[in-house]
């Protein structure tokens, strides 16, 4: 019944989607339209991306707290340079490099992931503040139209691209090795998996995902803020948990985490339409997280008792 835990993300997403639909319809007197769906998609996109990177790291048995710092730096650079395509490519390279630094320290320096990424989180956040001391900056309208157009469903295309990307990754040798490392590092090494390179790789990918998230963030908000990344630390981990990725590593799917990310964003909308003071948003988000995880654990326990 491990399946159930792995599908937790989709179940929670379905439940929150129903709640969203109900609350929206009762409070506005009409069902949500395509504009609402696109708005949700565009606002979720950064979290979806960070959650994909985070789940890759968690599947290898690690954790990446520096996602907050990488998103912040990339938001700062994108906004400060005006978001031209050339600079966006540079930002993506920057994110991957920042992630690779984590990976090299964790894999070859053998420092615990939580320590490493806590330290680099603080470094990257500091760099972001240095680049963009006050919120502001801009992004090319042409780039916006492609990334997060509120009128045309480009968001859907990007989401499809994320799913396809995961599908491909799962079918590469690297993808198989990611699960092998998280499942049992010593055994993986014994059967010839280059554990250090795989670890360095997932942190670099996580950095790349955070960079993409930063670019999408500037695109949806049309400006930058050097503290933009901070919330992503908690929300990306929450997405991974709700998405049914095991923290012990080796189990789960980034797609579960994507579902978890969308659900988490929906919850905020549900709270909004239910008329709950935004002050209490984090309180309710936390409650939601606890309840979702408890339900998943209870379901797994029940299933185990039935088979035993």
């Amino acid at each position: 019944m491990r399946d159930l835990q792995e599908r937790l993300g989709y179940l929670v997403l379905a439940a929150t989607a129903v709640a969203y639909f109900a609350v929206y319809t009762t409070s506005l007197g009409r069902p949500p339209g395509s504009f609402d769906y696109l708005a949700i998609l565009n606002t979720t996109m950064p979290l979806v991306l960070v959650a994909v990177g985070q789940s890759l790291v968690v599947i290898t048995g690690g954790i990446d707290l520096s996602v907050g710092g990488v998103v912040s730096v990339c938001v700062a650079v994108t906004a400060a340079t005006g978001g031209t395509p050339g600079w966006i490519l540079a930002v993506l390279a920057l994110g991957a490099a920042a992630g690779l630094v984590n990976g090299v320290i964790v894999a070859f320096g053998r420092i615990a992931p939580i320590l490493t990424t806590l330290a680099t989180l603080s470094i990257y956040t500091g760099a972001a503040l240095w680049i963009l001391p006050v919120p502001g900056g801009s992004i090319l309208p042409g780039v916006r139209a492609v990334l997060s157009n509120p009128g045309v469903p480009t968001g859907l295309a990007w989401l499809a691209l994320v799913v396809a990307g995961w599908w491909v990754l799962r079918r590469t040798r690297f993808g198989m090795r990611v699960y092998a490392v998280g499942s049992d590092e010593t055994a993986a090494r014994a059967v010839g998996v280059p554990v250090e390179r795989v670890k360095a790789g997932v942190y670099a990918l996580s950095g790349l995902c955070s960079a993409l998230a930063g670019v999408f963030y500037v695109s949806t908000t049309t400006a930058g803020d050097a503290n933009a990344g901070a919330p992503f630390i908690l929300t990306s981990i929450a997405s991974v948990v709700v998405g049914g990725v095991a923290f012990s590593g080796g189990r789960g799917s980034a797609m579960g985490a994507v579902a978890g990310a969308v659900a988490l964003t929906l919850v905020i909308d549900v709270l909004f339409f239910a008329g709950i003071d935004p002050l209490y948003q984090s309180l309710f988000q936390g409650l939601f997280l606890v309840v979702a995880v408890l339900l998943g654990t209870a379901a797994a326990l029940l299933a185990r008792r039935r088979t035993a």
């Binding site: 040798r173 198989m176 092998a180 499942s183 010593t186 055994a187 059967v191 080796g250």
Partner: peptide, 19 residues
């Protein structure tokens, strides 16, 4: 001490090196 990867399926374990 065996070097099977517990979370991978038997098939994945057998073919990890040459899928």
């Amino acid at each position: 001490e065996l070097s099977l990867l517990p979370d991978l399926t038997v098939a994945e374990n057998l073919l990890l090196a040459a899928p």
